[in-house]
Simulated assay, not measured.
Amino acid sequence: MEERIFSSADLPYSTQLIPLSTICTVLVDGNKIHTTSVKNRVKQWYWCGVFGELYGSANETRYANDIVQVVDWINNDRNLPKTVTDFYFNPMRLLGLQSRQSAAYKGVMALILQNHAQDFISGTEMDFSTFANEKIDIHHIFPKDYCIEKGYDKRKWNSVVNKTPLSARSNREIGGKAPSVYLSRLENKGSVSSVKLDQYVESHWIDHRMLRGDDFQNFITDRAKKLLIAIETATGRAISGKDSDEVKQAFGGPLN
């Protein structure tokens, strides 16, 4: 709940719960699991597993190593667990995250919710009650129909970079219109000022000026940068290759 994963369908890896539950059980002794420093280390290990996509298959050896290494890291301040040091995230992976089949895709959505993301119409923060009551789901920011009409690269517009959690009501108002058009509609529908709506938009790591200007390309580059920063913060690890030739060609510029 604290990590903004509200349903089993949105859980990145059910397999990672096995070592997680064991680690937490061991750390209950002395009430360590409730201290901030210990929780932060467990969270770091967890997100390294998610964004490193390390719990997809053949996990038995990793289970055993993580249980021993994470507990030793916390209790005795020993070396970083292998799952933390094994973490690697290629910036190009953002364009490959096209559906919620991927653990990293689900992880990105959880990080957006952790950022106190607000619904575009109501401005309500998407906590557990809002998630259930307002039927929060993942939707395109630049709508699919609009992107197809404009001939934009599907690899970009259908990637996690162009998606965010929104209520069903907000998504209906968005329709297939240009962002500049649907933002005006949202202001009228929700009786919200432009300033407030811009704040709601920014809570999703979206630059409101680029959205209001229908600036798709710069939006993609800017949001990719922000998502990479969020992943680095969650994992406590630096992401390399943000200025590689491949990245610059794919995103239209470096991501650092």
Score class of each variant (00 low, 15 high):
123 G>N: 04
211 L>E: 05
245 D>M: 10
128 F>G: 07
238 A>M: 11
164 T>G: 11
130 T>C: 07
176 G>V: 03
164 T>D: 06
188 N>T: 09
127 D>S: 10
175 G>Y: 11
239 I>V: 13
187 E>P: 12
146 Y>H: 11
178 A>S: 13
159 S>L: 04
123 G>S: 04
170 S>K: 01
201 V>N: 04
184 S>Y: 08
184 S>W: 06
124 T>I: 05
192 V>L: 02
235 T>N: 09
156 K>V: 01
199 Q>C: 03
191 S>W: 00
187 E>Y: 08
179 P>F: 04
153 D>L: 10
219 F>L: 04
216 F>P: 15
141 I>R: 00
152 Y>T: 13
164 T>I: 02
219 F>R: 02
122 S>N: 02
221 T>Q: 12
176 G>L: 08
202 E>M: 12
205 W>K: 15
237 R>T: 01
147 C>E: 04
214 D>A: 09
196 K>Y: 01
230 A>Q: 14
203 S>A: 01
173 E>R: 03
232 E>M: 05
174 I>P: 02
179 P>A: 02
152 Y>I: 14
216 F>Y: 14
142 F>P: 04
187 E>Q: 15
134 E>M: 10
180 S>V: 08
181 V>L: 12
230 A>W: 09
244 S>I: 11
171 N>L: 09
131 F>I: 05
223 R>N: 03
216 F>Q: 06
163 K>V: 03
240 S>F: 12
160 V>S: 02
217 Q>P: 14
163 K>Q: 10
224 A>H: 12
163 K>P: 02
161 V>D: 03
210 M>N: 13
221 T>H: 07
185 R>H: 10
178 A>L: 10
246 E>S: 11
208 H>R: 12
205 W>D: 12
227 L>R: 15
178 A>E: 14
204 H>E: 07
230 A>G: 14
141 I>G: 00
225 K>Y: 01
149 E>S: 13
155 R>G: 12
191 S>Q: 11
191 S>F: 00
141 I>C: 00
140 H>P: 04
211 L>F: 05
188 N>C: 09
210 M>S: 08
212 R>W: 06
175 G>N: 13
193 S>T: 15
141 I>T: 04
234 A>H: 13
184 S>N: 13
156 K>Q: 09
144 K>S: 09
179 P>V: 06
140 H>M: 04
170 S>L: 02
230 A>I: 04
158 N>Y: 05
181 V>P: 15
125 E>W: 05
229 I>R: 10
194 S>G: 14
234 A>E: 07
171 N>G: 10
205 W>Y: 14
215 D>F: 07
128 F>H: 12
171 N>M: 10
193 S>W: 00
163 K>A: 12
160 V>E: 01
189 K>C: 01
192 V>C: 01
224 A>I: 08
123 G>C: 05
196 K>Q: 12
236 G>S: 06
188 N>E: 08
141 I>E: 00
156 K>P: 07
164 T>Y: 02
219 F>P: 02
189 K>H: 01
207 D>A: 12
